[in-house]
Amino acid sequence: MSKNNTASSSEAVGQKIWPLWEVFIRAKNGLSHRHAGSVHAADAKMALEAARDTYTRRMEGVSLWVVPSAAIVASDPGDAAELFEPAADKVYRHPTFYVIPENIKNI
């Protein structure tokens, strides 16, 4: 199924399975889009409407992105040791020696 992410995919239609789309919502202007979840839809336009109906019913956002799930390239959990662990002992990369003013949000 992951190969089929367009409406023209006769295989997906034949199996009555719609492709999966990842949904990203911008909560308000100035913030970045954040992953909210996923929806099934036959094509990009319908994915946007399904995302609107599924994830923005309670004023969650001002902008939506949908991306075919199949277009996302993910890191291999098995590579976690070499990808992420080397950062563990490099405390000097954290800006923890600064005091962040209380009125600064979203950092």
Partner: peptide
């Protein structure tokens, strides 16, 4: 037919 459709009709 689908959860997404269910939600949109209910909305």
């Amino acid at each position: 037919p689908m959860l997404e459709v269910d939600l949109s009709l209910a909305n």
